[in-house]
């Protein structure tokens, strides 16, 4: 365009409100990429106004009962419907106690009034490199359930993101559930979010960490995943292997930091320089590992 137009009103689209999952999938099958799923709307409506997304149809799934459940089955893990809000997740005792890294990420995501609307599935589907929930789901090894009239498939979260704002979802698919397996017994989790002001900001760098059995090398599990350091949220898989070795903790931390540096490619943007992000990757990772491995309080 040769002119700048910043809209106040939303461009036109049709609003569809299916009452069942079957109906929702039918609509998605019929309209494909012209239809977009509206769960919380906190990202979608901004993108529509700014013309970043131009749906002809908006499918509101909040009326679909099947998608509104947050379930926990001992031994199997969490099952989070795509219409479940972040507030519901934040309020869940089970999530806080057993899936602490997810809870920690969710409570730092956006702000309180937005979390009453925004959903976990939406945060994933938006595929922002700055997604706060994605790193947590990555270290927890979550799976995304994608459904269409053709059937249902489960995609590990690490295979879900394609590029900035792009996923491996097909145009007729929608996220129906997110499965989060039971984390390793006695694991600790933490989400470290670096922001420009101390509260309510997009992550300049986000680091999710999960650790179990810090003192026993062979049983030790350490996982790290990142936001805002690459075109997609990334799990640095090498870290888990590194910590299987029986070496002094500080040495392992140094190795892990090096592995993370290799797997990340931060850029300079309006939220921070690449140099600063690299610093956060180094110091933040080291700090988080020190905390998770109980070197420091």
């Amino acid at each position: 365009m040769s002119v700048l137009v910043f809209r106040t009103t939303l461009p036109r689209f049709e609003y569809l409100r299916p009452k069942s999952l079957g109906e929702a999938l039918e609509l998605k099958a019929k309209y494909g990429g012209d239809a977009m799923i509206l769960a919380g709307g906190t990202d979608l409506l901004v993108d529509i106004r700014m013309r970043a997304k131009k749906p002809k149809y908006v499918i509101d799934i909040k009326g679909v009962k099947e998608l509104s459940e947050l379930k926990y089955v001992e031994g199997r893990g969490l099952e989070i419907g795509s219409a479940v809000t972040l507030s519901e997740i934040e309020r869940s005792k089970v999530v806080k106690e057993k899936f602490h890294v997810l809870w920690d990420a969710v409570r730092q995501l956006a702000d309180f009034p937005l979390r009453t609307r925004a959903t976990l599935a939406g945060n994933i589907a938006n595929a922002s490199p700055a997604s706060d929930s994605a790193p947590a789901l990555l270290v927890l090894g979550a799976e995304v359930e994608l459904s269409s009239t053709r059937g249902t498939r489960k995609l590990p979260i690490k295979k879900f993101f394609k590029w900035v704002k792009q996923t491996y979802m097909e145009p007729d698919e929608m996220i129906t559930r997110i499965f989060v397996p039971e984390p390793p017994r006695d694991s600790k989790g933490m989400y470290l979010k670096f922001t420009r002001i101390s509260v309510e900001d997009l992550s300049v760098v986000g680091i999710a960490g999960l650790a179990a059995n810090p003192k026993e090398p062979e049983k030790r599990i350490v996982r790290l995943a990142y936001a805002s350091v690459a075109p997609t949220p990334v799990l640095v898989e090498e870290v888990e292997e590194i910590f299987k070795h029986d070496k002094p903790v500080k040495e392992l931390i140094r190795e892990a930091v090096e592995a993370v540096k290799k797997k990340t490619s931060p850029i300079t943007d309006v939220r921070g320089t690449a140099e600063y992000r690299r610093h956060l990757i180094e110091f933040g990772t080291a700090y988080l590992l020190n905390r998770l491995l109980e070197v420091i309080e």
Partner: peptide, 11 residues
């Protein structure tokens, strides 16, 4: 509490 600029009237 919700931010009413990010909610469709229909919703």
């Amino acid at each position: 509490p919700v931010k009413s600029c990010l909610i469709l009237a229909a919703e």
